[in-house]
Measured scan of single mutants.
Amino acid sequence: HEITLHINGRRVKLRFRDEKAAEILKEAAKKGLDEEELKKLAEELWR
């Protein structure tokens, strides 16, 4: 699955395995994680 989040006016595509991962990524984006941090988090969730 993929999700596209808008971060600092940019579109960031993240891959994720399940809905739980999608929710975690959305929450992290709301908390203000930047693009690099979100990509790292997405990679961690993928494993």
Rank of each mutant, 00 (worst) to 15 (best):
V12W: 01
E36D: 13
H1W: 14
A28R: 04
R11W: 15
L14M: 05
E43L: 09
K30R: 14
L45H: 02
A22C: 13
E2I: 14
R15A: 03
R11I: 15
D34G: 13
E27S: 12
E23G: 11
T4C: 10
H1T: 08
L14Q: 00
L38P: 00
E23I: 12
K31F: 12
L25D: 00
A42V: 04
G9T: 02
E23W: 09
K39H: 11
L5P: 00
K39Y: 15
E36P: 10
K20Y: 11
K31H: 14
A22E: 08
R11L: 15
N8R: 08
L14P: 00
L14G: 00
E19P: 13
L25P: 00
I7W: 03
E36A: 11
E43R: 08
R10S: 07
K20V: 10
D34F: 07
E27N: 11
G32T: 04
L38V: 09
K20C: 07
K20Q: 11
E37I: 07
A29M: 08
A28T: 03
L33I: 11
G32M: 07
K20S: 12
D34I: 09
A42C: 05
I7N: 02
R10A: 06
E23S: 12
L25S: 00
K39G: 07
R10P: 00
D18G: 11
A28Q: 07
I24V: 11
A21S: 15
K20W: 12
L38K: 00
R47Q: 12
E36C: 09
G9M: 02
L25T: 01
A42F: 04
R47W: 13
H1L: 11
I7Q: 02
I7K: 02
R15H: 05
H1Q: 12
E43C: 07
E23F: 09
K13Q: 10
K20N: 10
E2P: 02
K31W: 11
A29P: 01
K40F: 12
R17Y: 08
K20I: 09
A21M: 07
L25I: 11
A21G: 10
G32S: 05
G9L: 01
E44K: 13
H6T: 15
K31V: 09
R10W: 03
G9C: 06
G9S: 03
E2R: 05
A22Y: 10
L14S: 00
L5C: 05
I7M: 06
A28H: 07
R47K: 13
A22K: 15
I7S: 04
E2L: 11
H6P: 04
L25K: 00
K40I: 12
E27A: 13
E2G: 03
K40C: 06
L38E: 00
R47P: 04
D18Q: 04
A42H: 02
L33K: 08
K40L: 13
E2K: 05
I24H: 06
E19Q: 15
A29K: 03
K31Y: 14
R11A: 15
L38W: 03
E23M: 13
E2D: 06
D18P: 01
A22S: 07
I3Y: 03
L14F: 08
W46Y: 06
E36F: 13
L41Y: 04
L14I: 06
K13M: 07
K30I: 12
W46T: 02
G9I: 01
E44F: 14
L45V: 03
L5G: 00
I7C: 04
K40W: 11
K13P: 04
E37K: 12
A28W: 10
E36S: 12
V12E: 00
D18H: 06
R11T: 15
K26E: 06
R10M: 09
A21Q: 07
I24N: 04
R47I: 14
E2N: 07
E19T: 10
E35H: 09
K30V: 11
I7H: 03
A28L: 06
K26V: 12
L25R: 00
A28E: 06
F16S: 07
A29T: 05
W46A: 02
K39D: 04
I7L: 08
D18Y: 06
A29V: 10
K20D: 08
A42S: 07
A21H: 15
K40R: 13
A21T: 07
R17E: 03
I24E: 07
A28G: 08
V12Q: 02
E37Q: 14
L33A: 14
E37M: 13
R11P: 15
G32Y: 05
L5K: 00
V12T: 03
A28N: 06
I24K: 09
T4L: 08
K39P: 01
A21R: 02
D34Y: 06
V12S: 01
L25Q: 00
K26A: 07
L25G: 02
I7D: 01
K39Q: 11
E43F: 08
L33Q: 08
R47H: 14
G32H: 05
L33W: 14
D34S: 15
E44C: 09
W46H: 02
L25N: 00
L45C: 02
L45R: 01
E2F: 15
E23C: 07
A21D: 15
E19W: 14
T4D: 07
V12L: 12
E36H: 14
L41M: 10
D18L: 03
K31Q: 13
L38D: 00
E37Y: 10
A28F: 08
K39L: 14
L25W: 06
L45A: 02
F16W: 05
L25H: 00
H6C: 15
D18F: 06
D34H: 10
R10L: 08
E44M: 12
V12F: 05
D18I: 04
E36L: 12
V12H: 02
R47S: 11
E19M: 12
A22H: 07
R47V: 15
A29N: 05
G32F: 05
W46M: 04
L33S: 09
L25A: 03
G9N: 05
F16A: 15
F16H: 07
I24F: 08
H1G: 15
I3W: 02
L45Y: 03
H1R: 10
E43M: 08
L45K: 01
E27L: 13
I7G: 01
L33C: 07
L33P: 02
R47D: 10
E36N: 11
A28D: 01
K26Q: 10
G9V: 01
E44N: 09
I3M: 15
K39T: 13
W46P: 00
L14K: 00
E23N: 13
D34M: 10
L45W: 03
K20F: 11
K39V: 14
K30Q: 12
R15K: 11
W46G: 02
E37H: 13
E23T: 13
D34Q: 13
T4M: 08
R47Y: 14
L5H: 01
I24C: 07
L38M: 12
E27G: 08
E27H: 09
L38R: 00
L14D: 00
T4Q: 06
G32N: 06
L25E: 00
R11Y: 15
V12A: 01
A29H: 12
L33Y: 14
R15S: 03
R11K: 14
N8G: 08
I3E: 02
I3G: 02
G9P: 00
D34W: 06
D18R: 02
E35G: 08
K30H: 12
F16Q: 01
L38Y: 02
E27F: 06
A29S: 07
E44V: 13
E36Y: 13
I24T: 10
I3R: 02
A42G: 05
D18V: 04
A21C: 07
F16G: 04
K26Y: 12
K13A: 06
N8L: 05
L45P: 01
L5D: 00
D34A: 11
G32K: 04
R47G: 10
L38C: 04
L33E: 06
K39S: 08
E27M: 12
R15C: 06
G32D: 04
N8S: 06
E35R: 06
K30D: 11
E43D: 12
N8P: 02
K20H: 10
A42T: 03
A22G: 14
A29E: 04
L14Y: 04
L41D: 00
K39W: 12
E19V: 09
K39A: 07
N8F: 04
W46N: 03
E43W: 10
I3S: 01
N8A: 08
K26S: 08
A29L: 09
K20T: 09
V12N: 00
L41W: 04
A22F: 10
W46L: 04
D18W: 05
H6D: 14
E44H: 11
I7F: 05
L45M: 09
A28Y: 09
A21Y: 05
V12Y: 03
R11F: 15
E37R: 11
T4F: 08
W46Q: 02
A28V: 04
H6A: 08
E37T: 10
R10I: 09
E19A: 14
A22T: 04
E36W: 13
L14N: 00
K31S: 13
N8M: 06
F16K: 03
R10K: 15
R11M: 15
G32I: 05
A42R: 01
F16N: 02
L25C: 03
R17A: 07
W46C: 03
E19L: 11
N8E: 07
D18E: 08
E35A: 10
E19H: 14
L5E: 00
E43A: 09
I3K: 01
R15V: 05
H1A: 11
K40H: 11
E37L: 10
R17P: 05
K30C: 14
T4H: 10
K26H: 08
E23V: 11
K20L: 10
K39E: 07
K30G: 11
R15T: 04
H6E: 14
W46V: 02
T4G: 03
E35W: 11
A29F: 13
A21F: 05
A21L: 03
N8K: 09
E35I: 15
K40S: 12
K20G: 11
G9D: 04
A28K: 05
A42E: 06
L38Q: 01
E2T: 14
E37P: 05
A22V: 10
A42M: 05
G32P: 03
R17L: 09
K31P: 01
K31M: 15
R47C: 08
D18A: 04
